[in-house]
Every structure is written in structure tokens, then in C-alpha cells.
Design a protein around this nucleic acid. Structure first.
Lengths: 236, 236
DNA sequence: ATGTGATTTGTACTATCGTACAAAAGATCA
DNA sequence: TGATCTTTTGTACGATAGTACAAATCACAT
């Protein structure tokens, strides 16, 4: 015998723990946290409800473990792509590369998790909408650093735009990103079948193209007061 | 006697029915549908749990009534503003006016509902994220017409952009709009206090400015193949 | 004042929730 | 093989969910 991992890695069935995690991820991402019961998850994973308690103690613990599983690889990937993007010479190209470095890992697999990128991002979107406490804590801890790094990088390639505007626009980017993963069918519907909202590559290209243009818009301070507001309020 | 409305409109307390609706709206919009119990709503409204059943029969019925209450006024307001926007001569100004006509009613009061616009839009965002069935049906029925009208109007002022791109970009707009209402605190945090995410007027200006630029971006077909992708995938 | 219909209250029922825990089953190695 | 540890199963418990319903209360026309 060469070496046996302390019998920790080997489960009777092909890793029931992973099956539960995957099922929970899928169900939480599509239905929200409170709409999914532990029994739903167990059934979807082909496991016993008690098995969920054994592996993750509580339902919150299960959600926490999902975040732990993805956050590391995703942020690592983003850092790598961001570092590469910052080395791009041409300013216009660099901005696009930075935006792409932010968007791509959210749509595609984090690392060895198969196709889990989009699913996890959608999960984050739903948890954010529900104001989930567990998610809120993790996000503030884990993602704010990454967000700041991207904002700074974008600001460097657009020095004439105030940082405040960049924050707003990157916020819009994240919102658009989230919404694209939450309701891809709406794109298919509104385009009358001409576009496929579920096509990750297409969504990425559209999102990158639109976002780069949004970042390059003139700053608000200098643009807003110079123009009259074209639409008057109907009442006030 | 002139005429008395069959004593249907008069409630003992200052309209308990409205209080329940308002409380439910607020709670649903901040915590999601399933996280809020009928008892929570009743308590927040200062009512008895049974009173909710009396007025709205079921919890779904309550949500349905919230939508019914807002959809009409909001779409009407949007139609008015859109009609006015379409009369703007200058193409650039017209585009901005159209975007504003789409955004403003989502942030401000629908009609006589005090400040309910933002709350209701946030509710829609959360229901959309949770994949709520009741909401999904209403939205497809009520909002798709409006969305098509706006997409057509934008397309008219940007004839060189394919309709598919406009659909995607309007989808991003809605996502950004939703997200701004869902987590305004994130903007405040990331801007280190320089921007206030809860300031509706500021959010509107930022969103309009960024979105107009996004719509004006070159079409994807002609732009994407002409440029090399600046970032290579780190693995593939 | 009184009767009538609209509303509110209080309570109860059943279903399902998250979680706990003991027993069974499987794996590992002396 | 038998001892030991890990994992799975089955079941149960208290809490809370949505909803139903009878009794109490109110507003108001007569």
C-alpha cells in the first residue's frame, strides 16, 4: 500500500457530502433560502435529512460551507485576471480587460467546481435580495476587498472620472450581472427568441461591452448641470 | 342623503386594510416572501393575524393585491413619461428622456401611494430573485408590454444598434435598478461615505448617465470580432 | 335604541419546519 | 475476526407555519 488518506476522504457512496452541497446550492439559488427545507435538499441529494445535520450541523452552517467552498477560488481567479489586465498597455483595452476579469469568474467555474461559477453567483444574488444575514457577513468580509481592488484599477485607467461615479457604475455592473443570472429567460422572451439569456458567452460579451461604455461616460458633476433635464415631472 | 358608499370603504381604525398592505410590502421587500410570516405582518400593522385572512384570504392573495395596487399607476406614469420623451427632438436628449421615463417611476411614488415606488420596485426585485410564482405570472402579463414599448422607443433613437443588443442593455438597466434598491448600503460602504446609496435622486442621475452611455455603445457584432480579447483565460 | 352587516379578535387545527439523538450499517485496521 | 470509528438511517420533539372559524365588537341606517 502506498498511502491511504486517513479514511476521511472516502465515503461509502460517491461523496454524499458533496451531493448535499450541490443540491443545496442549486435549490437555494433558484428558490431562496427560506423556501427550501432541509428535507428538500436531502431528497434532491438522495440523502437522509439527518445526514445534513451530521455534515453541516445547521441549515445556516450548510449555507456557510457553500460560501467557503467558492469564495476562495473565485477571488483567487479574479486576482489573477486582474493582475494580468493591469499589465495591458492600451488604456481602452485595459479597461475592457479589467471589466472582463471581474465578470468572467462570476459566470464560469471557480476552479474544480464544475460549472459552479454561475450557480454560486446566482446564489449570491438571491441571498443579497433576501437580506440573508449569514451571506451579508461573509460578503462584507470577503468581497469588499476584491471590489475595492477593481474599483481602484478602473479608476487608474479612468483618472478623470470621480471615484464616486466609478463606485456607482461598478455597483450597476454587479446588479446587471446578478440579474442576468437570476432571470435569463426574460432576455429570451423580450428579444422574441433572437437572444438566448442562458448563453453565458453571449451574456458576458454584451455585459462587458455595455459596461465599458458606461464607465467611459462623462463624469456626473460636469455633465448634469450643463444639460437641462429633458423630461419634466408630470405632476410636481 | 346624497349617496354613501355601501359602508365598504369605512373601516373602524384608520384603514386597517391599508396598514396590512403597507406592512406586508415593507417586510416582503426587505426579507423576502417566505421569511415573513402572516403573524409578522399582522404585528407590524397592529392587526390580528385573522384580520389578514379576512381581507386577503391567503398569503399569496396579499402579495397579489400589493401588485394590483401598484402596477396600474406605475405603468400609467411610465406611459405618460414615455410619450413625452418620444416628443423630444434631439436624439441624444430623447434617449436620455426615455431612460429617465423608465427609471424615475421605479424610484418615486406611483401615484397617491406615499413613497411607495421604491418600496414596490424593491419588492419586485426580491420576488424576482426568489422566483416567486405569483409575481412571475403578473410580471409577464403586466410588465412585458411596457418593456417592449421602451425597447422599441430606444431602438428608434438608436436605429444602428441591433434590437438584441438593446434588449440586453435594457435588461442590464433593470438589474442595476433593482440592485440599487436592494443594497443601497453597499454603495455607501464602497465609496467610503462619499456617496449615499439611499439618495434616490443621486442614484437616478448616476443610473441614467451610465445607462445612456451603455445604450450608445457600438453594436456587438461590429465591435467584438474587430478587437482581440485583451485577457487570455488563465487555464483553457 | 336596535337590528344588521362589516370587521376584528381569539383560538384551534393540521402540516411542516429545523434539529436532536439513538440505533443500524459500513469502513478500517490490529 | 473483532474492535473502533465514521457515516447513514429512522424517528421524535418542540416551534412555528398558513389557514379556518366562531364569538365579540363596531358602524350605521332605520
Amino acid at each position: 500500500m502506498v498511502r491511504k488518506p486517513t479514511s476521511r476522504e472516502t465515503a461509502r457512496k460517491p461523496n454524499m457530502r458533496e451531493a448535499i452541497l450541490a443540491a443545496a446550492e442549486e435549490l437555494f439559488a433558484t428558490n431562496g433560502f427560506n423556501a427550501v427545507s432541509v428535507r428538500d435538499i436531502a431528497q434532491a441529494a438522495g440523502a437522509n435529512p439527518g445526514s445534513v445535520t451530521y455534515h453541516f450541523k445547521t441549515k445556516d452552517g450548510l449555507l456557510l460551507e457553500i460560501y467557503r467552498r467558492h469564495c476562495g477560488p473565485m477571488n483567487l481567479r479574479r486576482s489573477e485576471l486582474l493582475a494580468a489586465a493591469k499589465r495591458v498597455r492600451d488604456l481602452q483595452d485595459r479597461l475592457e480587460a479589467i471589466v472582463r476579469a471581474y465578470v468572467v469568474p462570476a459566470f464560469t467555474s471557480g476552479s474544480d467546481l464544475a460549472g459552479g461559477g454561475a450557480r454560486f453567483t446566482r446564489l449570491r444574488a438571491v441571498m443579497s435580495a433576501e437580506g440573508n444575514e449569514v451571506a451579508r457577513k461573509i460578503i462584507a468580509q470577503t468581497f469588499d476587498d476584491t471590489s475595492h481592488a477593481f474599483i481602484d484599477a478602473i479608476h487608474e485607467s479612468l483618472p478623470h472620472i470621480p471615484r464616486t461615479d466609478i463606485v456607482w457604475r461598478s455597483h450597476f455592473l454587479l446588479g446587471a450581472l446578478y440579474y442576468s443570472l437570476v432571470t435569463p429567460d426574460r432576455v429570451s422572451r423580450l428579444s422574441r427568441g433572437e437572444a438566448d439569456g442562458s448563453d453565458a458567452a453571449g451574456a458576458i460579451e454584451q455585459l462587458v461591452q455595455a459596461t465599458v461604455a458606461a464607465f467611459q461616460a462623462p463624469a456626473l458633476d460636469q455633465a448634469a448641470p450643463a444639460r437641462r433635464r429633458p423630461v419634466a415631472s408630470s405632476k410636481t
